[in-house]
Design a protein around this nucleic acid. Structure first.
Lengths: 185, 185
DNA sequence: GAATTAAGTCAATATGACTGACGTAAATTT
DNA sequence: AAATTTACGTCAGTCATATTGACTTAATTC
């Protein structure tokens, strides 16, 4: 992160002056469209995932590993099937990443007690430590982002994010996220 | 989208009952960490990008094409170099995607008037139509997400997202996003 | 006993990214 | 005018993450 890149000057983004033939749209989009929000989401999310990526790179892990680690840390004893459902990836995609995490001693698999077909997933102590480290990085960024916002912004933002999710899926996601806050009022 | 998946039951995510040896962490994470916000961001962003993905799939385009199309639509006449700076990808990565967009008649390249080395990028009429379609989808989701939020939530959310970005990069991003709102108060 | 479920695996493929080097034309600097 | 820098493109190879579809094994459920 912190890459005051894209050239402080976007020099070429002028209009008119280029070969704009008559009839060309030389404005940057219909004013009624929420371009700014869309772009802020894009950049914000990129920064948000960027901090963990830097740490993970040292382990030769990528974002896929982070997602798996996160949800296993949060849901100790989760089944492979449920993890697939959350991540919405295929068994094959998960398989490789999971194997690497297990081999690296980050995640541990235990046979289910009631159902011996299951390989329940847990973070190891090392995995837990890594998960906490990554979450702390994201926490720091979130806290900086909340500075100076009016009271109640926390709830506004949570509600906004929740409502970005299709209504039919909200209940399931809420169960998973199990926020202590009242998001359904 | 709309895939009330992950099994409405996350059946296996119980604690205690599995082979939790003494000393195991059987809780789902330190209460002080903002897991819920982190996860809401993850799910919200996935839904947000999911709508366009479905449309793009019909053209055999992916998310990379969407990003290029979006920023060209928003910045008609942008230089390749500046686009690279915004997307933070390499020339090679952009090259392939851009070529496909040009071949498909979505994006047009014109020689710079003042600087003939430049290949300034514009959306074609077709490209413009597609860009608008995709933006409308995202607009609809954003509008649904804003329903029922208190007055001023719009500004809170914009500020939150902006502050997720490292301070040094904010000015550049604001220039690009050129929001009509007062984000810097 | 049959059907279903959980998990893993094989093989082939696609997408989007990367590195590093090199070339060409045009513009800018010295 | 020559040297340097910039804008763009390209070659060649690699990697990470995802896909599909088929198939196996073991265990559970009907």
């Amino acid at each position: 992160m912190t890459d005051v890149n894209f050239k402080s000057t976007l020099s070429s983004v002028s209009r008119e002056e280029h070969g704009a033939k008559s009839g060309d749209r030389d404005q940057r989009g219909d004013e009624s469209l929420p371009y700014d929000l869309i772009e802020l989401l894009f950049f914000a999310y990129r920064e948000f995932t960027g901090d963990p990526d830097d740490v993970l790179a040292k382990f030769e892990f990528g974002r896929a590993h982070h997602r798996v680690l996160h949800f296993v840390e949060r849901n100790p004893g989760i089944m492979v099937t449920d993890l697939l459902g959350i991540l919405k990836i295929t068994k094959q995609s998960l398989g490789r990443v999971l194997k690497q995490l297990v081999d690296a001693g980050i995640i541990e698999q235990r046979e289910g007690h009631h159902d011996r077909r299951q390989r329940l997933l847990f973070t190891t102590d090392q995995g837990h430590a890594l998960a906490v480290e990554l979450t702390r990085l994201q926490q720091q960024r979130l806290e900086r982002a909340l500075i100076g916002l009016p009271d109640g912004s926390n709830e506004v933002i949570r509600k906004f994010l929740l409502q970005m999710i299709d209504p039919e899926a909200r209940a399931d996601i809420l169960k998973l996220v199990r926020t202590p806050h009242d998001l359904l009022d």
